[in-house]
Amino acid sequence: MQNNLVTQSNDLIFATYSMELKEKELLLACVSRIDSRVDAKIYTKQTKFTVTVQEMKDLFYDETNRDNAYRDLKNAADRLFYREVIISLEGNKTLKTRFVSGVIFDPDQSEITLTFAEDILPYLTQLSANFTKYRLVEISELSSIHAIRLYELIICWTGQWQYSKEFELDDFREVMGVEGKYKQFGQLKESVVDKALQQINENTQYKVSVQYRKVGRSFVRLTLNFHKKSLAKIADKEGKLSEDMLSAIVRSKQFEADYNNYHRLSGEGKHDTDKFRSEMKNFITMYPEDFEKKPLENYLK
């Protein structure tokens, strides 16, 4: 299961909902059972997704907290059944639905079976564009629901070639699913931001940093900068990728010689210098692991 892909529509990534950690783990474990490709099998409101306690133990538990795994799973499923989600639609409309429509509890087999709500299925299946995906194992070491939530957003943003996001604090609370909570800045910083950044920075391939902005005596907004850790040497002191360095790298004659047949380039990118440079800046930030012929900073010399 750990290598299963979790794929969700970006509309669902940005949706408004509140959820606890074990609910999110159960939800994602079931989502990872779905083949979201357009040519995959058709999933309906009758399709069932089963997760065993052993699978959840192997992925999300360590040796010190495994004894009550079925109880945790059952309680998570109970709560998840009642969770609502609000998704923005076109034309100033919103959809209010639930994630799941049914739960089967099987203590004898130590497993839980979910069926997804009919209205949520289009955001999990038959996805051809505007979706976010990652492997389930990538969030297995994140023990904060806020860390998982922020990690999903970062994967989504980087998929849109965005590596910095600025929020008013109330907007950040909304996107993190804590609207109306942590009203004091210190609470929000300590319980949501600091914890999420620490876990992401320690347990994933991303480096995230934050800056806060004051108006008068009050903090009013924050800026998140994020990139894959392998790009640290072309980031500035605030953790933001340097546009000047990226431009210098892709303009290097040696870089062009090394990667003029890079497999992700479009046909135009292989024949037009400006298009090559534009595409390669995006590919470096998205897939730095592809560029291993020499350290990227060497192309700056």
Rank of each mutant, 00 (worst) to 15 (best):
K229I: 12
A196T: 00
Y163F: 14
A248D: 04
I249M: 05
E243A: 08
V208K: 08
H227I: 01
D170H: 06
Y163P: 06
F185P: 07
D194K: 05
V208W: 05
E190L: 15
D194T: 10
S209E: 11
E190N: 15
Q162W: 07
S230V: 06
K165H: 03
K183I: 02
S209V: 03
Y212R: 06
S242G: 05
F185I: 00
K183F: 03
V210D: 03
T204H: 06
K228G: 02
F226A: 12
S242W: 05
A232N: 15
E256K: 15
E243T: 13
V215D: 15
K233C: 03
S191G: 05
K189T: 09
H227C: 00
Y163A: 01
Y212S: 00
S230N: 05
Y182A: 00
E243Q: 04
S230K: 02
L188K: 06
K183W: 04
R251L: 14
Y182H: 03
S252I: 12
R173N: 10
K229S: 09
G186T: 14
F219A: 14
R251P: 10
E166Y: 04
Q199E: 15
A232H: 04
S252R: 05
F167W: 13
R217F: 14
E202Y: 12
G180P: 02
L188R: 06
Q198T: 14
E256M: 15
G216Y: 01
L169K: 14
E168T: 12
Q198M: 06
E238I: 00
E166K: 04
A196Y: 09
F185D: 05
E179L: 02
V215M: 13
V192I: 05
Y206N: 13
